[in-house]
Design a binder for these strands. Structure first.
Lengths: 190, 190
DNA sequence: ATTGAAAATGAATATTTATTCGCTTATCTT
DNA sequence: AAGATAAGCGAATAAATATTCATTTTCAAT
């Protein structure tokens, strides 16, 4: 009995991400994915029931991964602002290093592939972000505006930053990253 | 001699926008579009060479329209901040009222449909936005950070705001809109 | 009213793409 | 080492989709 290879799933996911970032969700076929992953088309169907399942699985994996990485090194005992910056940097770094995931997630949101269930689960993973904002409000450090609004503002700006960085070839050196954090902090701070 | 009907092009565009916002670019077929527009599939090919041309034309039309609307009522003689808020509100209102275009543009960016030429032309239309930021900097009212960065920040946040507003059913009443403007202004102000 | 040129139609065709399946190859168990 | 079980293959098939085209309808000019 040979076992399904986890490494191969990673290969498939990476192939799909690369292709979607390059050509968009609508431009990517199962044939493209298998070729890019270096396996036969039929093999895709050993790992996933079909295209839908593949896309949903990838979507869920990306989401889980990104949330998990965001809070790496966060210690609620320490003061708010450095902790917040830590998370902000985690997110930005993640998005920069996983640009393809950013694009993939964006393209998926309005696709017929992602099921309500998958979407739901993704949403639930946002809870820690809300909690973070509430802490900042409790400590009177950030504005008493709806936390959803604050998060949208912060994450939307970051997303666009990452995308435009890629297109326009701006390099995000440390100084530019700090400038951007300052924009964000000035926006949110009480 | 019967003439091609401009109203029909609008119908086609609106059908395409509606469907893309609902199902994503990858979920929309020429058949869907013609059905939604209330015309025969073959008629689409009277107006456009094919799907590519249709998508590119719609992309260009959306972009031109949105830029044009953004500067409505802007008078460079008047002080910067109210002028800036005027434009900011124009953009926000436009995006809220034309949610489908927001989604369509987003989905297009990484699709194989949009040609380099179309993309180029869209980019050129950004010039007035850069000029606006430069004015604010000259008057020492906003941060001396790279204008591209400032714009990305502002527009990215708005885009996400509009999207999340639709999903989560937040209603953007006047007070909430003003809160969001304050976030934006605090971010940019010197 | 008649006519001609263009628009509109939608069934038929061509093309693309997802999925299946009979077969081969690899790996685990005994 | 042999047998069994599952992975891997890719050509063949099925399904979905774009595009064409022979025909009909519309409408402005005469």
């Amino acid at each position: 009995m040979k076992l399904k290879d986890d490494k191969k799933i990673v290969q498939i996911f990476q192939a799909a991400l690369k292709l979607v970032a390059k050509k968009g969700l609508s431009g990517v076929t199962m044939g493209d994915i298998s070729r890019e992953a270096g396996i036969a088309t039929g093999t895709l169907y050993v790992y996933f029931k079909g295209k839908d399942e593949l896309i949903n699985a990838l979507f869920a994996a990306c989401r889980e991964n990104s949330v998990q990485v965001s809070f790496k090194g966060y210690n609620p005992q320490l003061p708010f602002k450095p902790g917040f910056k830590n998370i902000w940097l985690n997110i930005l770094r993640y998005k920069l290093q996983h640009f393809e995931e950013v694009i993939f997630m964006e393209q998926c949101y309005h696709s017929p592939f992602i099921t309500a269930g998958t979407r739901e689960k993704a949403q639930q993973l946002s809870a820690p972000f809300y909690a973070l904002m509430e802490r900042g409000q409790k400590e009177q450090l950030i504005k008493q505006t709806d936390t959803g609004l604050l998060l949208i503002f912060m994450l939307g700006a970051m997303n666009e930053l990452v995308k435009q960085t890629h297109y326009s070839g701006i390099t995000l050196n440390r100084s530019r990253i700090n400038s951007t954090f300052d924009l964000c902090w000035d926006a949110l701070k009480a």
